[in-house]
Nucleic acid binder design. Structure first.
Lengths: 133, 133
DNA sequence: CCGCAATATAACCACATGGTTAATTAACTG
DNA sequence: CAGTTAATTAACCATGTGGTTATATTGCGG
């Protein structure tokens, strides 16, 4: 049962799903910084190793590139993965442009009895018991 | 130690960080569907309750609105949270447009001895030992 | 070479996540 | 009312995540 490696889009979104990590990216958008520079704003809230771990998540997602210079690890922001993420979301643009109209449109399809029709369609499948085992 | 509620941006990104969930959104982008409709493509891989859980994540993130009609729960996609997510990423546009140039630019700042300067700055902080207790 | 500064690793812990099966609720239908 | 369909809830388990402290590693500078 080998531990399931996530696709890169998932890794990107997961990496962005943390305010500390997003703040680190914000810092990096203003220029290269090494680990202690990145950690400095957070040291009242968490330890250095915690920051290192966050950084590793960003690295694995490809959002940060960590190089070496003597005992320092200068980090730079790499936007490429965000490109994919935005491209994926772009597909839903129409849904976030008129957001509020969604409910109204749903009500229309509902009065058209469409909801019921879609449901009956699902019935033909019969008993679903063939699980993965 | 009350369990720490995540900000909505984090919830949105976290919700999107799973291929099953993204597939459900894709399905919903083609029109309203109730739970079993949404579940159907996945029933070879996971059980119905698992789907319900994924759906709940999407709901909490505000990406899906689940209404009631008799014993069915018609779901619709709500793009609003994506709007915020994209807006946040937009801030980094310059970084994903020239992606590959980043390394080159880093090398320039490096030869300008900037990396060293930034590091020395961090030293003034002294011993950081006041953890949160 | 010694010691410190910058970072990484290890070992550990609490809680979240993603899945399971079994049981429950709710609403229609014969 | 009995049965069936749609969905949820409960209880449980394995693994991941985010944090900790303590210990190593590495490189520079006196």
């Amino acid at each position: 049962m080998q531990t399931h490696v996530p696709d890169s889009l998932s890794q990107t979104f997961a990496a962005l799903a943390d305010p500390t990590r997003r703040a680190m990216l914000a810092r990096l958008s203003k220029g290269q910084a090494n680990v202690s520079d990145l950690a400095q704003p957070f040291l009242n809230d968490m330890s250095l190793p915690a920051v290192t771990k966050h950084l590793k998540v960003l690295e694995r997602a490809g959002l940060v590139t960590k190089t070496r210079e003597a005992q320092w690890r200068p980090c730079t922001l790499n936007g490429a993965p965000m490109k994919d993420a935005v491209a994926w979301m772009e597909q839903y643009r129409e849904f976030w442009e008129q957001s509020l109209d969604r409910l109204g449109e749903y009500l229309k399809t509902l009065t058209a009895q469409d909801g019921r029709a879609a449901t009956k369609r699902a019935k033909g499948k019969g008993k679903r018991d063939g699980r993965k085992k």
